[in-house]
Design a protein around this nucleic acid. Sequence first.
RNA 1: GACCCGUUCGUCUAAGGGUUAGGACACCGCCCUUUCACGGCGGUAAUACGGGUUCGAAUCCCGUACGGGUCGCCA
Length: 451
Amino acid sequence: MTVRTRFAPSPTGFLHIGGARTALYNWLFARRHGGRFLLRVEDTDAERSTDESIRVILDGLRWLGLDWDEGPGVGGPHGPYFQSERKEIYDRHLAKLESAGLVYEDEGAVRFRVPDRTLTVSDAICGEVSTNLKESGSRRYDAELKQEVEANPDFVIRRPNGGYIFHFVNVVDDIEMAITHVIRGEDHLSNTPKHLALFEALGATPPRFAHIPLNLNPSGTKMSKRDQGALIHEYQEGGFLPSGVANYMALLGWSAKDDREIFDIAELVERFDLAGVNHSNSKFDYGKCLWVNGEHLKRLSASDLASQAGPFLERAGIDPADPRLPEALGLARERVQTLAEIPGVIGTIFAEAATYDESSVAKVKERADLPQAIAALSDHFAAVDVWTADGIKAAVQSAAEGLGLKMGALMLPCRVATMGSTSGADLVPVMALLGKEAVLKRLQEFAARLG
RNA sequence: GACCCGUUCGUCUAAGGGUUAGGACACCGCCCUUUCACGGCGGUAAUACGGGUUCGAAUCCCGUACGGGUCGCCA
C-alpha cells in the first residue's frame, strides 16, 4: 500500500506554526515511506477564502520546502483540490447516505444519524479511544448557561443553504483522495468518532489516525497569531532558514530518541516516525528556535549563505557583487542566528563611514588617554607596508608598546573608532577588508569627534 | 459541567521495573581569545500529589490536583 497523507488547511490568511508543523509531519511521513503528500484547501467558508489568503499558505509551504504531489498548482487524479469546487462529489455521497436512510432533514439542514454504539479510534499516538456518539452527543454544554442542555446527537452535515460541514467534506475527501494516514492536531481527537461513523456509513475503510500534541505559547495557552514565532511568513522575513524552522518545528513534539537535535531536511525524512512523537503538548521557545537556526546557518555552504543572505544584504544597501563579501559573510556567520542580523555585524565594512554607537563611544571615552591611543594607532597603521591581518596586529602591538600598554588595551578603542561599536565582527579581519585608507580616515574622524 | 488526552529541570526532551534520572536551549562560573564573538570545560535546576503492586517504581494500577482539547448549521 502506498502511503498517502494530506494537509488540509482552511485559508485564514496566515500559515500558522501549528498548521505548518502538521503539514511537516505529514510531509515527512509521506517522504519517509515513499508515499504521496496531498494538499487540499478547505475553503467551504467562502468569506475568508480569498486568493490572497490561499496564496499565503501555499507560499509558506513552498518556502519551507514542503512540496505536494497533488493539489493546487500541480493537479492530480483526485482533483479538484479546493473544496469549494467539489460540490457534486459531496452531493453524490450525500445521496448514498440518503438512500441508506442515514440522514434526515431538520429545519432545512441535513443531519446524520449517529450509530448507538461504541466507536473506537485506534490512534497511532494516543492508543485506543472509545466513544458512543449517541450518548455523548445527547447533551451539550451551553457556555452562556454554564450547564448542560439536551441536544440532538445527530450532527449536521449540510446547512440549509446547501453548504457542507467540515466533518462530512473532510471524510468524503479523504475517501475520494484515497488518504491512508491522517496526521492532525489532537484537537481533532474528540471529533474522530464522528468521522469514523461517516467512513463506516459511506462503506469506506477509515485511514490510520495519528493525533499529534498541540504547540502552545510560552504561557501555556493556545498559540495566537500575536505570539512571537506564530506565523511562518515572519520567519521568512526575519531571516530564518527553512531548514532551521523545519528542524525546530519537528522537535516540538517529536524526538529522534538520541541526543541529536540538529537535522537537515533529508535527515529528518530519514529519521522521522510516529513512534517518536510525544503525547504531551509543548510550549514554543523562540530562543531555542533561534539557536537551531543559528546551527543551520553555520552549516550552510559559502555559496548558499551568499544566496540566502542576498535579500537581506541588498535591503541594507550592500552590493552583493562586492568582492569583499564572501570573506565578510564568513566573519558574520559565526556570530549570528538569523540572516537578518548579518548586515548589523558586517555592514560597517561596506559603509562610507562608521556609524558611532553612543554607549560604545561613552565606554571608551572613560579612558583619559583615548586621544593619544588613537593618535598612536594612526601613526603605526600609516607605517604599515603590507596591509594584512599580521601587519595590522603588529602595528597595534607596537602602538601599544609605545604607550606602555598591552595590546588588548588598545583593541577596544580601535574597534569603536573603526567600527563604531564595541560589538560586531572580528576586528582585525574587518580592518583588513576595510583597507588602510579607510581605517586611517575613520580614526581621523573619530579623533575629530573627540574634539 | 460531561467526556477525551496529557503531566520528568524555567523550556524542549531521554530513560518503558534496578542509572549518581542523561542531553539540548536559557542562566551562572572558569578557560581560550592581548578586541567582540565562536569554542571548550564546569555549575544551578526535574520525575505534580496520595495510595497501591513489587525485593525494587519516573516507569505498572487506582485516586486527587493541575494543564490542554471536544461538546456549532466553524474548520
